[in-house]
Design a protein around this nucleic acid. Structure first.
Length: 289
DNA sequence: AACACCCCCTGTCGGC
DNA sequence: TGCCGACAGGGGGTGT
């Protein structure tokens, strides 16, 4: 499901309802997702207020009133949904299949609210930490692609001496945080760079970004911003916390379009699919070099 | 250090 | 209709 634009869509959907809300009760319906829930997970959330809903790469970060941060990764099929509380008597069981966690919240005005986490494949995971430097997951994470630290020179430093394909480099969360399989393919198309191109071939001998890498560094934030504005992409089951579907899948230039014509003006190419590191890549062999 | 694999898990879809 | 394999937005872990 979720790359940076989808996670950001979830974050924006949760923010107005969750910010300032108190966690009144936590119900876990199983002991683990991808990993075990943190020790005393429910107890460590209960009674705290959520003071901020943030994001880093594909991670959601809920800042709690006691200084602890609750980190959540949605894996492939994870999602948070907001709902009104069920009528009395229907409590106790999860509201839907694959719901693994429910939080009862009380908004500042006293209004009750339920937020649930669903995840069919259970590739998602959660963590609690008081100090971000101690997070198992945040430590090696690269810069935000929509932030100041990310630019062509950063990409050039990461690409130098990497002989693997540029597509794999873009998917490496230590290089840039938040790109996944869809937006890596889409950014490469916009930059007219073939996914198989060797990463180090996009850097000059003196370590400067070549023009193709400059285009890529510009295409990445561009495609991510457009996808966020469209509420993310829904392939199968992605939904915003309101239940709304994403709309950016209608604007894919290459992802999932194997065999269809290239959409670039005057290009006669046909989109191809290829497998890299076990993941499908889509590209136009005519205009991406 | 970088890279190639394998794994985790469930649902869906196409082919036979 | 049913079965079976391939595939799907994720990342961690291991071995070379």
């Amino acid at each position: 499901m979720p790359e940076l634009p989808e996670v950001e869509t979830v974050r924006r959907g949760l923010t107005p309802s969750l910010t300032g809300a108190e966690i009144v009760a936590v119900r876990l319906f199983r002991p683990d997702l991808r990993f075990a829930f943190p020790p005393r997970f429910a107890a460590r959330l209960t009674g705290r207020r959520i003071v901020d809903v943030g994001r880093r790469g594909k991670f959601l970060l809920f800042a709690l009133s006691d200084g602890v941060t609750w980190l959540a990764h949605l894996g492939m099929t994870g999602g948070f949904l907001l709902a009104a509380p069920p009528p009395p008597g229907r409590r106790g069981a999860p509201a839907a299949a694959h719901t693994h966690l429910e939080l009862d919240l009380e908004r500042p005005g006293g209004e009750p609210l339920v937020v649930s986490y669903t995840d069919a494949r259970r590739f998602g995971f959660m963590e609690l930490f008081a100090d971000p430097a101690r997070s198992r997951f945040l430590g090696a994470l690269g810069p935000e692609p929509l932030g100041e630290r990310f630019d062509a020179h950063w990409l050039a430093r990461a690409a130098a001496h990497r002989r693997g394909p540029i597509k794999s480099l873009l998917m490496d969360q230590r290089v840039v945080a938040g790109l996944g399989n869809i937006y890596a393919s889409e950014a490469l198309f916009r930059a007219r760079v073939a996914p198989r191109r060797r990463a180090d071939a996009l850097v000059t001998v003196s370590g400067a970004p070549r023009a193709a890498l400059e285009r890529l560094a510009a295409a990445i934030p561009e495609v991510l911003e457009e996808a966020i504005a469209a509420g993310g992409s829904t392939l199968r089951d992605f939904r915003a916390s309101s239940g709304e579907l994403g709309r950016f899948q209608h604007r894919f230039a290459v992802y999932g379009r194997a065999g269809e014509p290239c959409l670039r003006q005057a290009c006669t190419g046909t989109v191809r699919r290829l497998v890299q590191a076990g993941r499908a890549s889509f590209y136009c062999p005519v205009c991406q070099r």
